[in-house]
Design a protein around this nucleic acid. Sequence first.
DNA 1: CGGGATCCGGCGGGATACTG
DNA 2: CAGTATCCCGCCGGATCCCG
Lengths: 112, 112
Amino acid sequence: MQDPCQAREVLGIVGDKWALLIVRMLKDGPRRFTELKRGIDGISQRMLTVTLRDLERDGILTRTVRTVMPPHVSYELTTMGRTLREATAPLLEWSITHLPHIDAARAEYDSR
Amino acid sequence: MQDPCQAREVLGIVGDKWALLIVRMLKDGPRRFTELKRGIDGISQRMLTVTLRDLERDGILTRTVRTVMPPHVSYELTTMGRTLREATAPLLEWSITHLPHIDAARAEYDSR
DNA sequence: CGGGATCCGGCGGGATACTG
DNA sequence: CAGTATCCCGCCGGATCCCG
């Protein structure tokens, strides 16, 4: 709670603008690569791949490959991933409720 | 809760790796520029200025200037800023408790 | 003290083409 | 379908100098 250095490391995960969106998309169970790509508006296939690898490396999610044709790869939150998802839930709720205020504040700031 | 587009906008704030650290530093009341610079390890003067401006623009904090010599500028969370701080608290707690696990997961992943 | 202005190097990340 | 590989541009952000 009082160690800023530790907090900084985690912001390497959380600060990634795609990571939290991926974690959020996995909250109701495993998803396939293409499902994630369709569900996360604007993400390139490259960034989806890279971010998924990072999250797998960090132990946030697991990658399961079914070697058939066509391939079938699914991603699922680990136990730790689910706790992360819970920890970020308040933040996402905050987002929804306060975005109008933020937009208003910006508009007013810019008008000066 | 179910609008990913809105969530993305807020990640513009949260995704900034310095923003949350600044918000966190202001949780116990107003701080001066130099206090923040000293308190946030590794931040450059430029990024501190830029990030503070952005947060002011978004209505997260206020900037108060006392025109004396030497100048005295203090930053303080707005009401909305304090709610953001509360919303991010679980995430910071999560950080502290899970960082060892993340490091372990990384080490194991890299060893393969 | 708390910035603003400028320069510039690195890399984040998009677009495209190719594979098992 | 789920990637990898390559190219390449933009801008993030550090370093430095100046100012009220």
